[in-house]
């Protein structure tokens, strides 16, 4: 997995509550057995009209949003289905950071497995960022995972917190399975003492 230490990039703002993973990657694209190539289907039903032409009003299709790598989202982003394809699509499209006042749990965990950093910020801070961004006061931000700080190009400085374990894994681009296998002896010891109901008969 690609480590994420510091990321500088253009920001796109999406003012929608409860964006679910069915919107991020609609179900018709879940049939593939690969992990890559989902970016072209990101937000498909919002991004394209029924005839396949781009929907000019959709946030990601504006001239200003082109090349954005940081998504400023709203409450409960990534709710619904557990499909990791949602994160694969965001990452493949080019997003490395998603900032929101809250995330759905499964989506939040999936981000860390794919080198995407989800950052939780307070609702009022999100509001300030969105309003000033809408007024064109800023375009880009730098996200420093080591220092746990976001800085916008108009001078906002926001301190955030990421779980120490997840932060370590992302900073170093580490794979969870490798870490877990270091505890093989503990797993074996646990398995030796399992109770009757823990088995499949």
């Amino acid at each position: 997995m690609e480590p994420l230490v510091k990321h500088e990039g253009k920001v796109v703002c999406m003012n929608r509550l409860n964006v679910d993973t069915d919107q991020i990657i609609p179900k018709q694209f879940l049939k593939r057995i690969e992990r890559d190539g989902f970016g072209e289907f990101l937000f498909y039903d919002w991004r394209y009209q029924a005839d396949g032409t781009p929907n000019a009003n959709f946030e990601l299709n504006t001239a200003r949003a082109q090349g954005a790598t940081i998504l400023l989202a709203d409450e409960n982003f990534g709710c619904g289905s557990s499909r990791e394809h949602a994160v694969w699509a965001l990452a493949d499209y080019g997003f490395r950071v998603v900032i929101a006042p809250s995330f759905a749990d499964i989506f939040f965990n999936n981000c860390f497995k794919n080198g995407v950093l989800p950052i939780v910020i307070p609702t009022d801070v999100r509001k300030e960022l969105a309003e000033t961004h809408a007024k064109g006061q800023w375009e880009r931000a730098t996200v420093d995972l080591e220092a746990q700080v976001i800085e916008t190009d108009c001078g906002h400085r926001i301190v955030f917190e990421v779980d120490a374990h997840k932060r370590y894994m992302l900073l170093n681009g580490l794979d969870d399975i490798g870490l877990t296998l270091q505890y093989e002896a503990d797993i074996r010891a646990y398995e030796a003492n399992r109770k009757a109901y823990q088995f499949v008969y």
């Binding site: 497995k113 969870d176 877990t180």
Partner: peptide, 16 residues
Amino acid sequence: IGTSEVEHVLATQCLW
């Protein structure tokens, strides 16, 4: 769980 976690459980029977 997501697919990365599916792989993790297949390999280790555990999850962080």
